[in-house]
Simulated scan of single mutants.
Amino acid sequence: MPVELTALGHRFGTEPWLFRAMDFTFHEGTVYALIGPSGSGKSTLLGILAGWIAPAEGVIAIPHDRTATWVFQNPHGVPGRSAVDHVALPRLARGAAPDDADEEARHLLERFGLGHVAGREFRALSGGEAQRLMLARAIASEPAVLLIDEPTAQLDPTTGDTVNAVIGELARDDTVVVVATHDTRTRDACSAVLDLGRFARRAEG
Rank of each mutant, 00 (worst) to 15 (best):
Q73A: 02
A97L: 14
R111D: 15
H76I: 12
E110S: 13
L108P: 01
N74S: 15
V87C: 00
A68G: 03
T69G: 00
G95E: 10
N74L: 09
D100I: 14
K42E: 09
R66K: 12
P90T: 08
G80Y: 12
E57P: 08
A105Y: 03
L46R: 12
G80D: 09
L109I: 04
A61T: 10
D102H: 02
G51S: 09
R91M: 05
G95C: 08
D99T: 14
V59M: 13
P90N: 05
G95Y: 02
H116L: 11
P98D: 05
A118W: 08
V71W: 07
S82L: 04
G115L: 06
G95R: 08
H76F: 13
G80N: 05
A50C: 01
H86T: 07
G95M: 04
P98F: 02
H76R: 15
T44K: 04
L108A: 08
W70D: 01
T69W: 06
L89E: 14
G113D: 06
N74K: 14
A68H: 02
V71A: 07
E110I: 15
L46S: 06
H64R: 11
P90R: 02
I62H: 13
A88M: 12
T44Q: 11
A105F: 06
R66I: 02
N74A: 15
D85C: 01
P79H: 11
V84G: 00
G113W: 01
H116A: 15
A56M: 03
H86Y: 07
A83L: 04
H116Q: 14
P90K: 03
G95Q: 08
L49S: 05
F72G: 09
R66W: 13
A105T: 10
A61G: 03
P55L: 02
A61Q: 13
S82D: 03
G77R: 10
A68L: 04
G95W: 03
A101E: 09
V87F: 01
G115S: 10
H64D: 13
G77N: 11
W70K: 00
R81Q: 15
R111P: 03
L89D: 10
